[in-house]
């Protein structure tokens, strides 16, 4: 523990944002600061300019906002469930069986109908559907997989569309609970996680903790220096 004692040496917490060192410590620091010549180079005691502090705060907010686990993920099966329902609806089937059109024209027209029908619906998947447009052939390929999952009453949001497969997603989310809030248990007796990205993503929260740990330590480091109102006299050492 004695190794860490200098960290507490002269610690003063009455004005933590001004300085965390007592007067003796500050005087010592000022003496060294002014009396040493670092190969002909000196250092000033300026604070970061206000706009730059603002920029740094903005950086943190941006880091959090821009990397929020929203963008650029695999499409999940739920966003196409409505497509498949519509694909089996009478008007779409009528287009798909229309022998007067070529196969590709039929597919295109049918897909346009499906997308058009869903455009006005107030769906939570609207954004993702725009991000991951598909063709009728893609839809045909994923259809059996999605229907099978629907028959098993699986939560389609937990499945990603990966190429031709509908596969369980690569997320570790919240523990699964039943309607009463009790944890569901898997076949091995352990609690089961949702395969959904939770709003608190594990990596995301690690970052937040990490950042605050950093701020805490840097504030201590910087506030143990003499207050920013003091300007060193560089003529002494030279």
């Amino acid at each position: 523990m004695s190794k860490f004692l200098p960290l507490l040496d002269g610690l003063k917490l009455s004005h933590p944002l001004k300085t965390m060192s007592d007067d003796r410590k500050v005087q010592e620091a000022q003496y060294i600061w002014e009396h040493e010549s670092l190969g002909g180079i000196a250092e000033n005691n300026n604070p970061l300019p206000r706009p730059v502090v603002g920029l740094l705060i903005l950086t943190f907010i941006t880091a959090i906002a821009w990397t929020f686990p929203l963008f650029g993920q695999r499409p999940n099966a739920a966003i196409y469930a409505d497509y498949i329902t519509l694909m089996h609806s009478a008007p779409v089937q009528q287009v798909m069986n229309d022998k007067t059109l070529t196969t590709s024209a039929r597919d295109e027209k049918a897909m346009k109908m499906i997308v058009g029908a869903l455009a006005d619906s107030d769906s939570p998947y609207e954004f993702q559907r725009i991000q991951h447009p598909i063709s009728m052939n893609d839809l045909r390929i994923m259809e059996p997989g999605i229907i099978e999952l629907q028959n098993q009453h699986a939560d389609l949001r937990e499945y990603s569309i990966i190429g031709n497969d509908v596969a369980l997603a690569n997320f570790e989310g919240n523990w699964k609970t039943d309607a009463n809030g009790n944890f569901l248990k898997g076949p091995d007796g352990k609690k089961v996680r949702e395969r959904l990205q939770p709003w608190w993503d594990k990596g995301y929260m690690t970052s937040v903790y990490y950042f605050f740990g950093f701020c805490f330590l840097v504030i201590i480091t910087v506030k143990r220096l003499p207050p920013i109102t003091w300007k060193p006299d560089h003529s002494i050492a030279h």
């Binding site: 200098p6 040496d9 410590k25 010592e28 620091a29 740990g213 143990r224 220096l225």
Partner: peptide, 24 residues
């Protein structure tokens, strides 16, 4: 950590690097 206290600085450096390596 005060002005020019390198022993504490080195320990903090070690702690920071080790934490980073644990996480990454």
């Amino acid at each position: 950590m005060g002005f020019r206290e390198y022993r504490i600085g080195s320990i903090m450096f070690g702690v920071a690097l080790a934490t980073s390596m644990v996480v990454t």
